[in-house]
């Protein structure tokens, strides 16, 4: 077993375990931290597969911006210990049965699809330069659309967040 394969399995295990933990915590902050760990593990897998640029993006944007945004909002809501007791009420063990069963079937179907392919082909690394050329070549329209999407998200978030801030200032 090569080093890469071993590293891959280890990163995959970390990713899986931390995702499971993230989904089952009562405390929201704990769950978010575990998710960040999962994303870091994914970044390692990206690097191992030969997409270092994607790994960097995963850490910087996904774990670094999006998850931090989550953490900010959790802090802003400021639920505290009361939030934990609410979670205890909401998350009864019996509720896991049906969704787990359904998703297990879904997973098995996906594995059935994947099992038709040949296995363990070695991958090739793709350098960031190639990615850049492709991005501003054939995919330049997709880039423009993505930027407009982000603009829309920006405006929406600003608008939805604005009232809250104004009202809370008014209440003071």
């Amino acid at each position: 077993m090569s080093v890469e394969l071993f590293l891959f399995y280890m990163a995959a295990t970390i990713s899986l375990v931390s995702t499971v933990l993230a989904l089952t915590r009562y405390n929201a902050t704990h769950a978010l931290i575990y998710l960040i760990i999962s994303l870091l593990a994914s970044a390692i897998i990206f690097y191992l597969v030969g997409a270092p640029f994607a790994a960097v993006l995963e850490i910087v944007i996904y774990a670094g911006a999006i998850m931090v945004l989550f953490v900010f909002v959790v802090m802003m809501l400021n639920l505290g210990a009361q939030g934990d007791t609410l979670e205890h009420e909401w998350l009864k063990p019996g509720m896991w049965i049906l969704p787990t069963f359904l998703c297990l079937i879904l997973f098995m179907e996906m594995v059935y699809v994947l099992s038709g392919s040949s296995h363990l082909l070695p991958g090739t690394a793709v350098s960031p330069k190639e990615v850049g050329i492709k991005l501003y070549g054939p995919y330049v329209l997709a880039v423009e659309i993505a930027s407009m999407l982000l603009l829309a998200g920006l405006v929406g978030a600003y608008h939805l967040g604005r009232r809250y801030l104004m009202d809370s200032r008014g209440e003071d």
Binding site: I61, I66, V126, I133, A142, A146, L149, L150, G156
Partner: peptide
């Protein structure tokens, strides 16, 4: 091919936009 990474970047953009609006 580089297409996989490009798609990943677009997914990233979508996730960012969606999270900001969702949290709002």
């Amino acid at each position: 091919q580089a297409d996989g990474q490009i798609m990943f970047m677009l997914i990233l953009a979508i996730a960012a936009a969606e999270v900001s609006v969702g949290l709002g």
